[in-house]
């Protein structure tokens, strides 16, 4: 009996180990390739040990793209939108779940309805608005349309339902202001949910490609995904070393985020899926 259990355990570990190798391999190859020169990258069998060309590749990358600008732009836009989405979504979610005002259901239904409009449909109207406001090629065009998302409001509202009504009531009786209740009592207890939303949002913003591509049109204003994608174009030499270096740079912030918030990452995903 025990032997059988051990055996299945070993099988499971072998299987998981294989999965680990398969999912880590692309990252390992990215890291390795960022240190190889062009000929080494294409050699068969592939060279799996890092060589010393990282700095050469980096300087080639900097010749092609102002990558530090891109890193700053991406960090700036993602951070600002994430902060704003978390705060505004929490406020709106709180209002929708704990305040019973006239028309709240309809308002919430409208917000949900906007989630059902395919993103592609909104591109052209949004572009026209940006054009008329003169915001093309500015951070405003990247940040303002994303100050709050229906998904964030929805997620926070669901989370807020679990918050005990009695706690709010007693604070109110003790004379705490409404904003005070929110910031001092509700928000501190909602931090796990906020962290989950922050991570989801940051990841989305970090990888956002289509919209920045449409509204930004000078190199210094490009975000990381734009810069990386534009290293490849028909009729020109694709240099893989610099592309790999750029990918490594682009993945660092996400890796750091993941290491620090690993717990919330997973719990956030489960929260979203179960309560949704």
């Amino acid at each position: 009996m025990n032997n059988k259990k051990e055996f299945t355990k070993i099988l499971v570990y072998i299987f998981l180990g294989l999965g680990l190798v398969i999912s880590i391999y692309p990252f390992y190859w990215m890291l390795t390739a960022s240190t190889l020169n062009e000929a080494q990258i294409f050699k068969t069998p592939p060279k799996m040990i890092p060589a010393g060309n990282f700095l050469d590749n980096l300087s080639m990358l900097l010749d092609q793209m102002p990558i530090w600008n891109g890193l700053f732009n991406s960090l700036f836009v993602s951070t600002v939108t994430t902060a704003s989405i978390v705060l505004l979504s929490a406020l709106a979610g709180y209002a929708f779940s704990k305040f019973h005002f006239k028309g709240s259901k309809i308002l919430f239904a409208i917000i949900l309805l906007t989630m059902m409009i395919p993103y592609q449909v909104t591109i052209v109207p949004l572009f026209i608005i940006m054009m008329k406001l003169g915001w093309i090629n500015s951070y405003k065009a990247l940040i303002i349309p994303y100050l709050v998302t229906p998904f964030g409001v929805f997620l926070m509202r669901q989370q807020m339902f679990a918050f005990p009504e009695e706690l709010i009531e007693s604070a109110r009786v003790d004379g705490c202001s409404e904003l005070g209740i929110f910031f001092k009592i509700v928000l501190p207890n909602m931090l796990p949910a906020c962290a989950a939303l922050a991570i989801i949002t940051f990841l989305q913003q970090w990888g956002n490609f289509m919209w920045p591509l449409i509204v930004m049109n000078t190199q210094e204003k490009f975000t990381m995904p734009l810069m990386l994608s534009m290293l490849v174009a028909p009729g020109q030499v694709t240099k893989y070393g610099p592309i790999m270096v750029g990918s490594v740079i682009g993945i660092i912030p996400i890796a750091i985020l993941f290491i620090f918030f690993q717990k919330q990452f997973v719990s956030g995903m489960f929260n979203g899926s179960v309560k949704g």
Partner: peptide
């Protein structure tokens, strides 16, 4: 000079919208 991608993703919305297109576009 405006930088766009070779997939025309930034030109097509402007041509569709009838506003915001550059004066000259490069096309394969």
């Amino acid at each position: 000079v405006r930088r766009v991608s070779n997939s025309y993703d930034s030109i097509v919305p402007a041509l569709t919208a009838g506003i915001g297109a550059p004066d000259i576009v490069a096309v394969q």
